[in-house]
Every structure is written in structure tokens, then in C-alpha cells.
Nucleic acid binder design. Structure first.
Length: 946
RNA sequence: GCCGAAAUGGUGGAAUGGUAGACACGAGGGACUUAAAAUCCCUUGGGCAAUUACGCCUGUGUGGGUUCGAGUCCCACUUUCGGUACCA
């Protein structure tokens, strides 16, 4: 009887649904295990063969853990808000929700064919009001919180209000946009609006002024890569740098905790390193400089406090408020011209073309260490958003300052003994300090760094600065607050309305605020975001409901926020929602989160290293501060699956003809390679008839063959429609079955590695499953396993497999695990094994990989329960013990011949046996034995000397 | 530029510092078939050999080093792929 995978897979998929096999509940008697895939954005193109890779890996792990007795949560859902559906809506007028629902059902259909053990009862969709209710709720909580630096924790904003009323801002150590100094009296004298503005400085979700690429014509903010040469990529309209009031999240408040948390989680070192760099902690010193002939002081930040004696000029960021203050009358026009020029360049352009530009303000700053007057310049290589927006330039030891000094002919003073700064700056933090102060110069202060190492000099300077009150030690982070507003339609609406210029939260009990209908998905003619097109988008404060815009009177009815939230809003806490997805009272019940805690294993791509995986950690920490989340980190272990690349095929058309020449002969002609659909190519041999039928322009194509075949060229590229290399999993399931697909995806290589998809190799996995089928059934379809005690050889073979597979699954090394299955089956085949007990273990071990087939065979063996609930076979060391061991005898590391010893032979016995072996004598001629190295069970190496 | 990952047959890939190339694909040869498919068996890194030789040499991007022994560890370099962008 044939292995009929179609019937088997259909049967078991139905049975899993009927028996609710994969529905899980919180079961206090069992240990929990939470596995999670990064949920997909359901795109219109559907799944290709690369998408399920991570899901299959997770599924195998989930099934494995379940068989080990864990209560496994393995949910799936959709990150359903996104640009493609909105773009499609703009073009066609079709509501993005319709597109999204269609795409989701297509995804679901494809996923269902592969036989995952997802608990679909817990599905979430970010665009579902039942779900985004809690996204809005979390946002409101962030609005109503501030971050206390002393406690390192988010606290309710009310306690800050109380503090301000009692003490003013004195003694406040909190995360803030800028330092505000007010007294309690001043605070208490403020009206509501003024107080609201002050509080914005502290809230975790706050309205902030941020620089954006604003395109007035498109009425939208553009990302840096949507702007080229000062105009929008789409449409080519002018784009300007503009400050805009937008919602932001104070992610930066959590910088240190985000950094510290990395030490506690099992993520790859590379992704942790990426996050460390992104957070960008740098310990440095702030030093105050005075502007010459003026009362103005300003502060700079440096990590190289040791270079105080090498400062030759100062630089301000163009956006710095100091620019206006220090610019002299004579320089005003020139500085203004420079600022105008800078404004036109986008951030990206400033970065890509690193032309040195700048302008002198006319003022000088007094170096507190040397007393020298250093000219103050303005240049766009200094960023307003980092440090203090002002630097002291030490051209000898900073490459950017060096380039600037060279360009504007400013002095360069080397400060490290023996360093050469004639060609480039010496940036290394190694060496002995000199010229600090310079010999022959009368010291301005009683302080010298000469002779110290750089590290010592940094410490000494910090100490001096602190003691003499000219600055302080400061830790800076590169991590910026997240901009949380989008000028888009297809996203979560903000539960916020505006009353007299103040943002007000719509009461928590009235959530969710549902996305309103609009007739157009584009910005309005007046440049408002798409929600400006909504007519039912006003908040009636007294009746607590959404009403028609025409009722807005700004007394009881107010306009609602027109921005929507960005993509990461909905994806930041979804792992918590899976624990309790139907709860309409709270994000997640304390019981549910108390049981499931956090994600034990998270699987997804590296592309989220600095986006989702930072925001999500931030969001979780915030919820942790609120007492909602029970753990400081959301994802204990992270596996980054690699990308599946496409393998494209090419045909070679001879120029100006419709004749195609086979790969081997193509060098003899002047040819153009053309992508050909990989689905009409098999083992690089083109199906010529299918090719003619593929496209009309090829139906009279002619071919120059080799050996009667047309051989195609190939290349590894991204899997994409335009390369005709997309392989749909549906086709693979149809032809080989889901179990073969699952197995082959894992067999391709390590999960974490990127690798190309090549359908050709799939036969090997399919043959293996057919062969396994043949172990159970004869041609007539009768089960022909024998019920007897396994032999020693059979036990050794199966226990070797148990050990290997158990270890490999724990290590995510599925490809080697599958090889072990193949080896074991071959061994059993050699042994002519027909043992029922052995095959039962085999089927159980295989169940995570090929659940349908395993279920079928497990049932054949007389079990009425699902193999999912079978116990994972236990490994017994005893069966692997051998009577003898084979060891390689080598001379000076070169392997020569094998010898067999009793398993319990000690080193002395082995050495004697080797030395007395006649074969050994052959290699000893002309040498003396220096020493003998014995590696147990592996090798005996005899070191020889002349 | 900086950070990270990687480089092994025709291909995907195996190898706790211990016989490199497991396992699979492909290819070549054979068996069974009228034939094909399916299935099974043998060979398959390269080179030299071809039964006094189922042996020898060489081989994991390049060049050095450590070691009795290196694909694996160290140093320098080349290339490829990711990420990032003037963070003082």
C-alpha cells in the first residue's frame, strides 16, 4: 500500500479540530511553556516557502515540549495594520479592512495545510477593536505616568503633580525633555493649560516637538529614505525640515534598564550587541565654558576629558539656541545664510555626503583649563539631539574635528607622546599624555596631565572638574524617544481629544475608540491627516460619546486626534494578550499572566533587532512597573531564523533573435540572460513546451540544446515575484504532503542560517517517509511489525536516535536530527528489523517533525490517543555501551590504522598493545618514541623524533 | 567608516581540538521492467595508482602562529552577506 499523504493529512487535521487537540488552558498542575512566533503582516502575495520556516521550527519545539509533559502555549495572530493595505485603499478605494480580512483568510488557509499546533482560539489581530482597546489603554497609562530616576520606575503622574505643588521642581530626579526650574508657588499660580504644558515635559507618552521631513504637497511626514535631493520620491514634491508637534514615547527613560536587561536573557550575542550599540551608553563629562566678553555660559559633553588642553575651537549644532546668542553683529548675515542652507538638506543627505561645512559665529569661548579663547563655530556635524548640542573640538584626537580643522585651517595640538597627526587624527585611547599643559606656556591653573595614561588622565580631569564646579560626570544614551504619531489612516486611533489646546484622554470606560469611516484615505486638502476626512470624529464630553464634527463648539464637544499610532504600537504587547485574548475587562488577567509569565522561546527575524524588539521590551517594562506584566523581560530566549532565499533560473536568448541556447553553449553566443519561472524547470532542465506556453512572446521560440536537453543557469537571489523564483508551499504540500515540506524545510540547514530554497532536494525527505511507511505495511496494506523483545542492535540504534534527537531539538539543530532519523532507519533496515516497540519509539520521536504521519502510524500501533500526548521516549545509556572500542593509531598526528580494544581497557594496556602491534613497528623504523597521547575512545597518537 | 555573521565537493550542508566531507540532492554505472515511472545496489573532493597498491599524495578563502594533532584556537589579510550612519 502506498503512503497516501493526502488522505492521512486531511484526516488528522480534521481530527485535531474535532478533538480540540491544540486548545490549551491554564493548568496549575502542569509546568507551562510559552513558545511564540513573531506574528506576520498578512500581505497580499500570500505565503511563500520561506515564511513557514520559523513557524515549523517553533511547532517542532512546541510539540516536543508537550510530549515532555509541559502545558505549551503556541498561539498565532496577525500584525494587521500596515502600509500596503492603505496604499491599495488609496489606489482602489477599497477599505483596508476588506483587503486585510481577505489576506488573513488566505494566510490561514495556507497555514492550516502545514499542520501547526497553534491554538487558534487565541488568535489576535491588531486591527480588531477588541484588541486595540488595550493598545489605546496602554497609551493612556503612559500619558498618565512619569519616570522616576531614583526608583528607576514609572509612577502615576498624580504623585508628580503633588510634588510640584509642594516643592516645585527642586530636587526632582525624573526623566524629562528639558530641565525646568519652577517653584511650588510658580506651579500653583499656573492655569490649567500652563500646568498641562509643564507636565508634557515629564509624561512617558507626551506631545513633543520633533524635526521631521514635511512634504506640504503630500500633507505627510516622510521617512528619510522617501526623500531624495530635497524632494519626495513619490511625486517629486519639495520637502522641508520642520518642527512638528507629535506624540512621542519616552523610551530613553528606560535606557539603563534596557541595557541591564540584556544580561539576563538568552539572546544571540550579535543581537544583544546590536541593541547595546543602539542604546549607546557613553560615560563622559560635561564641562562648562564661558563666552569671552559676555555672561553667557554653555555646557559641552565629552568622553575625552583628557583632551582639555588640545581644544582649538568649539562647535554648535545649527539648531542650538546658543547660535543666536553668540553670533556677533558682523557675522549675522553669514551665519543666517548657513542655517538656511542646512535647513534644506535632510538628515540623510547630511549623513551621506559628508562635506565639511560650517561658519564662524564671531565669538570665543574661554577654555577653563588653559584660559585660551577658542573660536565658536556652527556646523551640521554636531547634532542638536545628542549631548548638549555643543562640543569642544580636539582635532588631534577626533577624526571629525580633524577634518573640520583641516578644511578651515584651524590649529591642531597633539596630546599623546609620539603620535603623528600630520595625515589623520589619533583617535585611539592609548598612550601617554603630553602638552597638557604645553611646555613653555605659563599654566592657567595648577593642573597637569602630562605623563599619565589616557585612562588616568580622564579620571583625573573628571575629579578636577567636579571639585572645581566647572562640570559634572554624565552618562549619555544614544537611544532616542520614539515618535508615536503617523499621518495615516490604517492604524490605531488615539483616544485623545483637544480641549483649549490641551490633549485630554477619553475616559478609560469609553474605550475602545474605533477607527472612523472616511471617504478618502489621503490627507485632506488643508494638509490634515486622513482622519481629517472623517465626519463623525468629535468627542462629546458630557454625553461621553463620539458625535458629528458639526457639533464641535469647544465647550462640550471637541475635536479628536487625527493622527494614528505607528506599526509597533500593536505589536509591542501582543504576547501578553495571547494569554487571555477574550478578556474585555483588562489587558490580561492577573491569573493568566501569573501562570504564563513570559515567552520562553521567541522566534523571528533579525530585522526587528532595533525596532520591535526594543519597543516591546520597553513596553513590557512599563507594564511591569504598573504591575501588569510579572517579568522584567518579555522574551527569555530568542532564536533568529534566517531568510530563505530564492534560487532563480535563467535562459539565454541570443541577441535580436527568439532563439535560446543551453547554458553550456551560451558562451559561444552573444546572449541576454532572462529569468524563467522556476516552476517549469526541474533540476535545471527546462520544460521546453511549458516555456513556450509560459508567455506569448516565447510560443515560437527556438532552442539550441545540449545532449537533447535545455540546461538553465541559476543564481541565488531574494525570493520575489519579479525574479520568478517564488515557490508556494501549497504546491509543495499538494505534491509531497505537509510532513515532507516540514521535514525538508528543517533539513535545508540550521534554522538560524540564511539559505536558498531548492525544491530539487525534497525527494530525499519524501523517500524517507515512504520508506518508513514501508516498515509498517506490506504491499497489500497489512501491518507487518512483529511483537517481540527488541534485540541489542535494535536497542542500540533506537537509543542512539533518542539521545541525538532529544539533544538536537533542545539546541535547535533540526537538520542533523533529521539526518539521524535517516541513519537510524537505514540501520534498522540493515538489521531487517520489524520490531513493534522500536518502531513505536521511532514514530514518537518523529512526531514533532511529521505529526500527520506519526499520528497515523501511532494509531496503526493500536493507540486511541493522539501521539501529541504520548510520552517522549526515555534515553537509556546502557544500550549504547559497546564491548570494544575502535581507536585510530596515528604517528605525529597522521592517522594510519585502526585498532580495537576492550571497552574497559586502561591507557597502559592500550599503549602496550599498540607498541607490540607489528603494524606499529613499520612506522617506528628510524624514529624514537617521544611520547604517546591517548584520547579515550578516539585516538592514540605516537609522537616520534629522529 | 564602524558593528556583527560567515567562507568546507557540482549543490544544500555534517564534523565536544582527534580518521574532514555525516545526511541529502545531483551526476555516473548496474538490477528489475517491452518501456517509462517507482524501487533497490555500487561509485562519486582532487590527483597518482590499479591487486605484491582496498595503497600513496593533496585538500576546509589567503598568509603566518600555537599544538603531538587545527575546518575548529590566536594574529594579519581577502571576499561575501546583514545592520548602522558624523553620538563628541
Amino acid at each position: 500500500m502506498e503512503y497516501n499523504f493526502r488522505d492521512i493529512e486531511k484526516k488528522w487535521q480534521q481530527r485535531w479540530i474535532d478533538n480540540k487537540t491544540y486548545q490549551v488552558t491554564e493548568d496549575q498542575h502542569k509546568k507551562k511553556f510559552y513558545v511564540l512566533n513573531m506574528f506576520p503582516y498578512p500581505s497580499g502575495a500570500g505565503l511563500h516557502v520561506g515564511h513557514p520556516l520559523g513557524y515549523i521550527a517553533t511547532d517542532i519545539y512546541a510539540r516536543f515540549k508537550r510530549m515532555q509533559g509541559f502545558n505549551v502555549l503556541n498561539p498565532m495572530g496577525y500584525d494587521a495594520y500596515g502600509l500596503p493595505a492603505e496604499q491599495y485603499a488609496i489606489q482602489t478605494g477599497q477599505h483596508p479592512e476588506i483587503t486585510t480580512v481577505q489576506n488573513i483568510s488566505r494566510y490561514r488557509e495556507q497555514l492550516d495545510k502545514i499542520g501547526f499546533c497553534f491554538d487558534w482560539n487565541r488568535e489576535v489581530r491588531t486591527c480588531d477593536p477588541v484588541y486595540y482597546h488595550w493598545t489605546q489603554w496602554a497609551f493612556q497609562r503612559m500619558f498618565n505616568s512619569y519616570y522616576d530616576n531614583k526608583q528607576q520606575k514609572a509612577l502615576p503622574i498624580q504623585s508628580l503633580i503633588d510634588y510640584l505643588a509642594a516643592n516645585g521642581s527642586k530636587g526632582l530626579d525624573v526623566a524629562q525633555t528639558e530641565e525646568i526650574n519652577i517653584t511650588a508657588d510658580e506651579w500653583n499660580a499656573m492655569d490649567e493649560k500652563q500646568q498641562s504644558d509643564v507636565l508634557m515635559n515629564y509624561r512617558i507618552a507626551f506631545l513633543g516637538e520633533t524635526m521631521v521631513n514635511w512634504c506640504p504637497k503630500l500633507g505627510t511626514v516622510l521617512a528619510n529614505d522617501e526623500v531624495v535631493d530635497g524632494v519626495s520620491v513619490r511625486g517629486g514634491y519639495p520637502v522641508v525640515q520642520q518642527k512638528m508637534r507629535q506624540w512621542c514615547l519616552r523610551v530613553s527613560a528606560y535606557s539603563q534598564r534596557l541595557l541591564d536587561g540584556l544580561e539576563t536573557i538568552q539572546w544571540s550575542d550579535s543581537i544583544k550587541e546590536t541593541q547595546r550599540n543602539w542604546i549607546g551608553r557613553s560615560e563622559g563629562t560635561e564641562v562648562e565654558f564661558q563666552v569671552a566678553d559676555s555672561d553667557v555660559h554653555f555646557t559641552i559633553f565629552t568622553t575625552r576629558a583628557d583632551t582639555m588642553f588640545g581644544v582649538t575651537f568649539m562647535v554648535l549644532a545649527p539648531e542650538s539656541e546658543l547660535v543666536d546668542v553668540v553670533t556677533t553683529e558682523a557675522q549675522k548675515a553669514e551665519v543666517q545664510a548657513y542655517l538656511d542652507q542646512v535647513k534644506k538638506r535632510t538628515e540623510r543627505e547630511r549623513m551621506i555626503d559628508k562635506k565639511v561645512t560650517g561658519v564662524f559665529t564671531g565669538s570665543y569661548a574661554i577654555n577653563p583649563f588653559t584660559g585660551e579663547k577658542n573660536p565658536i563655530w556652527v556646523s551640521d556635524y554636531v547634532l542638536a539631539g545628542y549631548g548638549t548640542g555643543a562640543i569642544m573640538a580636539v582635532p588631534a584626537h577626533d577624526s571629525r574635528d580633524y577634518a573640520f580643522a583641516r578644511h578651515f585651517n584651524l590649529p591642531i595640538i597633539p596630546l599623546v607622546e609620539g603620535c603623528d597627526v600630520s595625515e589623520e587624527s589619533y583617535d585611539a585611547k592609548e598612550g601617554i599624555v603630553c602638552n597638557s599643559p604645553r611646555p613653555g606656556v605659563t599654566p592657567y591653573i595648577d593642573f597637569s596631565l602630562n605623563g599619565l595614561t589616557i585612562k588616568e588622565a580622564i579620571a583625573a580631569t573628571k575629579k578636577y572638574v567636579r571639585e572645581h564646579n566647572i562640570g559634572r560626570v554624565k552618562v549619555n544614551y544614544r537611544l532616542r524617544d520614539a515618535i508615536f504619531s503617523r499621518q495615516r489612516y490604517w492604524g490605531e486611533p488615539f483616544p485623545v481629544y483637544y480641549k483649549n489646546g490641551m490633549p485630554m484622554m477619553i475616559p478609560e470606560e469609553c474605550l475602545p475608540i474605533e477607527l472612523p469611516e472616511v471617504d478618502k484615505f489621503l490627507p485632506t486638502e488643508t494638509g490634515e491627516p486622513p482622519l481629517g476626512n472623517a465626519t463623525q470624529w468629535a468627542w462629546d464630553e458630557s454625553n461621553r460619546k463620539i458625535v458629528d464634527n458639526s457639533l464641535i463648539d469647544n465647550k462640550t464637544v471637541f475635536p479628536i486626534e487625527l493622527y494614528t499610532m505607528p506599526g509597533f504600537a500593536g505589536s509591542s504587547a501582543y504576547y501578553l494578550r495571547y494569554m487571555d485574548p477574550h478578556n474585555n475587562k483588562e489587558l490580561v488577567s492577573s491569573d493568566a499572566v501569573g501562570y504564563w509569565q513570559n515567552v520562553d522561546l521567541y522566534v523571528g527575524g533579525t530585522e526587528h533587532a532595533t525596532g520591535h524588539l526594543i519597543y516591546s521590551r520597553f513596553w513590557n517594562k512599563f507594564l511591569f512597573d504598573l504591575g501588569i506584566s510579572k517579568t522584567e523581560e518579555p522574551f527569555k530566549k530568542l532564536i533568529n531564523q534566517g531568510m530563505i532565499q530564492g534560487r532563480s533560473n535563467f535562459v539565454y536568448r541570443i541577441k535580436d533573435t527568439n532563439t535560446f541556447v543551453s547554458l553550456g553553449l551560451s558562451k559561444q553566443y552573444d546572449v541576454t540572460p532572462i529569468h524563467v519561472d522556476v516552476n517549469i524547470v526541474s533540476n535545471d532542465i527546462l520544460d521546453v513546451e511549458a516555456f513556450k506556453a509560459w508567455r506569448p512572446e516565447f510560443n515560437n521560440a527556438e532552442f539550441i540544446l545540449e545532449d537533447g536537453k535545455y540546461i538553465c543557469g541559476w543564481a541565488i537571489e531574494k525570493m520575489s515575484k519579479s525574479m520568478f523564483n517564488v515557490v508556494n508551499p501549497d504546491n509543495i504540500v499538494e505534491k509531497f504532503g505537509a510532513d515532507t515540506l516540514r521535514m525538508y524545510e528543517m533539513f535545508l540547514g540550521p534554522v538560524e542560517q540564511s539559505k536558498p530554497w531548492d525544491t530539487n532536494g525534497i525527494d530525499g525527505c519524501h523517500r524517507f517517509l515512504k520508506k518508513l511507511w514501508g516498515f509498517f505495511f506490506d504491499r497489500e496494506g497489512n501491518m507487518h511489525l512483529e511483537d517481540k523483545e527488541p534485540t541489542k542492535d535494535e536497542l542500540r540504534s533506537i537509543h542512539k536516535l533518542i539521545k541525538k534527537v532529544t539533544e538536537d531539538i533542545e539546541n535547535f539543530s533540526y537538520n542533523t536530527s533529521i539526518a539521524a532519523f535517516m541513519i537510524c532507519l537505514n540501520e534498522l533496515s540493515q538489521l531487517k528489523s520489524k520490531n513493534r516497540k522500536v518502531m513505536e519509539d521511532f514514530v514518537k520521536l518523529l512526531a514533532p517533525f511529521t505529526p500527520h504521519l506519526s499520528e497515523e502510524l501511532y494509531e496503526t500501533l493500536g493507540h486511541s490517543t493522539s501521539v501529541c500526548d504520548a510520552e517522549w521516549p526515555e534515553f537509556n545509556e546502557e544500550y549504547l555501551k559497546e564491548d570494544s572500542v575502535k581507536m585510530m593509531i596515528s604517528f605525529n598526528g597522521k592517522a594510519r590504522f585502526p585498532m580495537e580494544f576492550p571497552a574497559d581497557a586502561d591507557n597502559a594496556t592500550i599503549e602496550t598493545a599498540v607498541m607490540n602491534n607489528p603494524q606499529t613497528a613499520k612506522y617506528l623504523e628510524g624514529w624514537t618514541v617521544a611520547k604517546v597521547i591517548i584520547v579515550p575512545k578516539k585516538i592514540v597518537n605516537i609522537v616520534l623524533k629522529k
